[in-house]
Design a protein around this nucleic acid. Sequence first.
RNA 1: UGCCUGAUAGUAUAAUGGUAGUACGACGGUUUUUGGUACCGUUUGUCUAGGUUCGAAUCCUGGUCGGGCAACCA
Length: 553
Amino acid sequence: MSEERSLNFIEEIVEEDIAAGKHGGRVLTRFPPEPNGYLHIGHAKSICLNFGLAKKYNGKTNLRFDDTNPTKEETEYVDSIKEDVKWLGFDWAEELYASDYFDKLYNFAVTLIKKGLAYVDDSTAEEIAAQKGTPTEPGTPNEYRSRSVEENLQLFADMKAGKYQDGDKVLRAKIDLASPNMLLRDPLIYRIKHAHHHRTGDAWCIYPMYDFAHGQSDAIEEITHSICTLEFVSHRPLYDLFIEELNIFPSKQYEFARLNMTYTVMSKRKLLQLVNENHVESWDDPRMATISGLRRRGYTAASIREFCERIGVAKRENMIDFSLLEFCIREDLNKTAWRRMAVLDPIKMIITNYPEGKTETMHGENNPEVEGGDGGRDMPFSNELWIEREDFMEEPPKKFFRLGVGLMVRLKNAYIVKCEDFKKDADGKVTEIYCTYIAESKSGHDTSGINVKGTIHWVSVPHAKTAEVRLYDRLFQVEDPSNEEGDFKDYINPNSLHIIPNAYIEADLANAEMGKGYQFIRKGYFTLDKHSTADQLVFNRTVTLKDGWAKKS
RNA sequence: UGCCUGAUAGUAUAAUGGUAGUACGACGGUUUUUGGUACCGUUUGUCUAGGUUCGAAUCCUGGUCGGGCAACCA
């Protein structure tokens, strides 16, 4: 029973086009990253939109690398992008590159020159900028604008042949120097760059600009719906104009609002700075909003897809609460993550009436949300246990359902214990607490008739293993670091990473698998970090559990 | 001060001239061997001023506020 969901504005356009029989009802989208950085959660929105649309309307999606600027692009980025898209769960119809079309694009430029719609300009970048005018003043033509078609053809061929140095000449579209749209004031469409390209090597020394590559690439692939973000709205007249003048496939561009999220930054430039200036470990640092960072943090592809589904698609500037992403990952992991016990900040509990040296085997299910518990595992129990320091208070307030002298709790999957006493060191720090256990209260066989409000987690001291546990907090201290006074890096949270070198974990966790989510009961969801080894386990906390108690106090 | 865009609870998003709804958040409750989950309930909204209409979030006009545009970046 699928629920009726309302359409977003792009789905409406697609449905109208299909109903009108446009392109024979065919839908072909594309995801067109520039391989100059790693993908982030904002790209995930675009990926889900493009691939999701194609899937919904029986179409296909191409993965096209927009690699027209050789000085910024690298194969390393191509590889990471492909990995991330695949990991998110999408399959592209074809893997394509704008650089595959350099010959065609060159010929398109020649066509434009022949139509008298493009000219070679010898001006410097500064001169061109000055001649463009301002939003309120029209630009002024220069002497090069009136060059003959023959001369332009020759000069452009010479540019391609490598007769000029970088910056000596550019090819410009001849449109309208007085246009209120600055982009139409004779935009540059080809520039000289004697640079090595990650795919075409040194075959070319002239490269097309975005505006003379993107729309044409869409047309060459016969993309039906070219979806991009709002900052390209003012490029659309150019997109349409070139397609019309070149008489090629009429792809259409549609724009949606990019994703912004609280407490993080989303631009490749800023993410690159965080990496280069060592504010984070790498592009896949678990605090980064990159796909690889979220993956390493323990986010699942399904949770990111769900997030992208929930945030919607519209044209309004937006700022999504980080808590929505957290909701999505909790929702997923709650149903899939195996429950385990780990004590992050330990204090020793001694059960005074339990035989010293005795070991009992307790049993716990893997996941209570799954029918039958999804299997389970054994946990050794003894008279000495590690419990969480915060689960004991010398002077417990009312409604503190944990330990304090005279209070009782259930040890998860084991016995009910009553706190009798505790010991402090010279600094007043509690070092040990003493309890008695109720023998008839064993989990699953409880005949004690005692009901307790609280249940706490524990790990048997002689059986415990250790692991490094990394706890993360938001990377920035303010909701919108890009919009604050000064540099966005001034707002980095100095406490975004807290490392616990030796947490106590239950023995079974030695079998933890890379890529799998675990819930450390009452402490949150965790996953193995890529630096983890058999000798030195390292867990990342993906997200905490929702905590109604912490908020009140 | 030119052009392009947009404006619905705290945050997003729907309602396509006819009951302003949903999700997240927040708050309260029930259940619970995780203060988790699940379930139930409460809360808060159409930027503004006019106009058209039996009826306007929706159409029209003016204003206000936000975002984008003057890279040999994409």
